[in-house]
Design a protein around this nucleic acid. Structure first.
Length: 662
DNA sequence: TCTGAGACTTGGAAAAATATTA
DNA sequence: TAATATTTTTCCAAGTCTCAGA
């Protein structure tokens, strides 16, 4: 029952219990209804489990009352706790003092990103370590000693054999083709069939290594940690305009097999090792130029202050550029983020006019204009992505608004008692399915029918529209306006509205947080931020259910004991018996609360099964809304933003007053 | 006007770090 | 203390959007 030293050092005695949402108890707005509808679509049960629940009161106090060692553990290390706390406060103050308050400074002239930039260059992954002699690759049952390049690639595959990827035809074919390119002529002549390859020993070795790393002693782990920290200290920071800034990804991506998402035609291809000769360095002219690794040179060293990257290289699978850039808490990223939300706020001031305009455009004589209007209607109402064109055969077949094809929507004159319903079913970014049935206006519906006339399944729905022309039009309506701004705007405004509706000052912190999470979830649903249910989901759910069941039994028992105690105490004036009754009462109460908490947790987990909240929190929700909400509701900010988020949104935390309105 | 390169944001999965529980 | 669950961080793929050049 000891409080762990780390816990003490951080000064928190425990986490707030899991929260759940009570949709049923909140008044539903139009948008909320829509979201609920979407939820039902994705087969998430909202009401069944938690509708009957009463608000629960959760507190650490109850938990601590239940324990018996609270006082002893506090006594033991009281001074240590105090010292640790003081240290923490001091560290925090120090950090705050060091923080670059760039948001209080003048902005640079357009296009200039920095005046001075110095860094150590990217960190290269360690070279390939050949297999030990006792680990063999077999072809057709016979051991084959591979050349080093072929061996390295074989190991990439071996490390993945229990991943679903390696069962896929496309992955296997791509891998085999690229692997053979790395082989010597001799190897190529021998190894003709992937199915005859036995990577068993290589795989076993990999598993063993992973296992061994996991089982390192505390000391060994610490040594590793310190070594890693040293790398971060050396390569993880740069100096940008007199300030030390954290770099986001200072490590060159190691070689491996390309893991494209969904049905990616290039999955399994070899992602080659990057050499210093492939890397372009970007830094100040007057700065210390980073040293390339011994015996190597850079591809180029340039001094371009109109871009934010420190190093770049071209990746061989897709031929695209990769960049080393700053961390999200840097000035460069923060300023851009701030700007993004300011543009979205500006949209708020003219969104009514823009909506009126596209409603009007639905009637246009120009087909292109009508298509643009319908597309905008979708982007605004459903928060669809713009949908750039993609090169066929180069990537998985996914679409956004402008690239929707006839096969992706079905029109229903009536559906489930509603008129003019559009049924969407397509794969969006990262091959995440978007499925939604949306009632639209008659005019939109009629237009869609028109667009689909004489078209085949694979034809573009909006054949007169692309994202460039759409964005060009948008920027003429408002400077800086693009399709993606609607997503930011609608996400943030939804959060604000939901918080306003769900919030209640009388609630306790846990309940307020519940409201916040619900609002956040509404946004995640709007933006279709889904995740695959965790692999261990069913198991963990079953475990929880088992715990609930056993707690129920405990409760029954406690109730019986209470009854018995009451019976015995009845008519008696024996104080001892009355105390027993009180004790039993408390036990029942405690049991009930714990049961409720677990049931709530189960509900929450179930509801969140396929919803990812982090993306919207990180990218779409103006942090000032959340900061102001915390101030108004008297909720500590660290209840909704962890350290990383607080760093990223330092600008917002610093500048936001309680009266901020998005 | 079209196209592709380039630069940057957004996205979920997986790994790693922590917290909790048995 | 070990096993397990949860949260945070890392990773890198996949989008959006702009701009230059034909």
């Amino acid at each position: 029952n000891e409080v762990s030293p780390t816990k003490q050092a951080r000064g928190d005695s425990g986490k707030e219990p899991k929260l759940h949402r009570r949709w049923a108890s909140s008044p539903l707005t139009r948008q909320n209804k829509q979201l609920n509808f979407r939820l039902q679509q994705s087969q998430i049960t909202l009401f069944t489990k938690c509708a009957a629940m009463t608000p629960f009161s959760l507190s650490k106090v109850i938990k601590e009352e239940g324990g018996h060692s609270v006082s002893t553990k506090k006594k033991k290390t009281k001074e240590e706790i105090e010292a640790a706390r003081a240290l923490k406060v001091k560290k925090k103050e120090e950090e705050e003092k060091q923080r670059w308050r760039w948001w209080e400074e003048e902005k640079y002239e357009d296009g200039v990103k920095w005046k001075f930039l110095e860094h150590k260059g990217p960190y290269f992954p360690p070279g390939y370590q050949p297999l030990p002699d006792d680990v063999k690759f077999y072809y057709n049952g016979k051991p084959v000693k591979l050349s080093l390049p072929a061996e390295e690639v074989a190991l990439f595959f071996a490390q993945m054999v229990d991943h679903e990827y390696t069962t896929k035809e496309v992955f296997r074919n791509n891998f085999f083709k690229d692997w053979r390119k790395e082989m010597t002529l001799e190897e190529r002549q021998l190894i003709m069939d992937l199915n005859k390859c036995d990577f068993g020993e290589l795989h076993a070795m990999h598993i063993k290594k992973v296992e061994a790393r996991k089982n390192l002693s505390k000391e060994e782990k610490l040594v590793n940690k310190e070594a890693n920290q040293k790398i971060v200290d050396e390569y993880g920071y740069c100096v940008l305009d007199h300030h030390r800034e954290r770099i986001g990804n200072f490590k060159i991506e190691p070689p491996g097999l390309f893991r494209g998402r969904g049905d990616h035609p290039k999955q399994g291809m070899l992602k080659k090792r990057i050499q210093p000769e492939d890397v372009i360095i970007n830094c100040s002219k007057g700065s210390r130029i980073p040293e390339p690794p011994a015996g190597h040179r850079w591809k180029e060293v340039r001094h371009d202050s109109t871009v934010t990257w420190l190093a770049s290289w071209t990746e061989n699978v897709q031929g695209s550029c990769k960049y080393v850039m700053l961390n999200a808490n840097s000035k460069l990223k923060g300023e851009k983020d701030w700007e993004k939300y300011e543009v979205a706020r500006k949209l708020k001031t003219c969104v009514d006019a823009i909506r009126a305009q596209y409603q009007e455009d639905l009637k246009s004589k120009q087909m292109g204009t009508r298509q643009r209007a319908v597309a905008l209607y979708f982007i605004d109402k459903l928060a669809l992505r713009a949908g750039n064109e993609k090169e066929e055969g180069e990537t998985a077949d996914t679409v956004g608004c402008c690239s929707l094809r006839v096969e992706h929507i079905t029109l229903h004159d009536t559906l489930d008692g509603q008129k003019c319903v559009v049924e969407f079913d397509f794969l969006g970014k990262d091959c995440i399915r978007y499925y939604n049935k949306v009632p639209v206006t008659k005019r939109v519906f009629k237009n869609l029918k028109l667009f689909m006339e004489n078209k085949q399944e694979g034809d573009d729905l909006f054949d007169r529209l692309n994202t460039q022309t759409l964005n060009k039009h948008l920027s003429s309506l408002m400077p800086g306006l693009t399709a993606k701004v609607f997503r930011t705007y609608n996400a943030s405004i939804t959060l604000q509205q939901q918080l306003k509706e769900l919030g209640n000052m009388k609630e306790n912190v846990a309940e307020k947080l519940l409201s916040y999470n619900r609002a956040n979830r509404a946004v995640a649903i709007l933006c279709n931020h889904q995740r695959a249910p965790p692999k261990t989901f069913e198991q963990s759910m079953a475990n929880l259910q088992a715990k609930i069941d056993s707690r129920k039994e405990q409760l029954d028992l406690a109730k019986k004991e209470l009854k018995q105690a009451k019976k015995e105490a009845k008519g008696s004036s024996d104080n001892k018996l009355l105390i027993v009754v009180e004790k039993k009462k408390k036990a029942v109460q405690r049991c009930e609360e714990q049961l409720l908490k677990m049931e709530v947790q189960a509900t929450d987990r179930e509801e969140n099964k396929q919803i990812a909240l982090s993306t919207s929190k990180l990218n779409y929700l103006d942090p000032r809304i959340s900061v102001a909400w915390c101030k108004n509701m008297e909720v500590p900010l660290d209840k909704i933003y962890n350290k990383t988020l607080r760093d990223k949104f330092a600008w917002a935390i610093d500048m936001t007053e309680h009266d901020f309105v998005f």
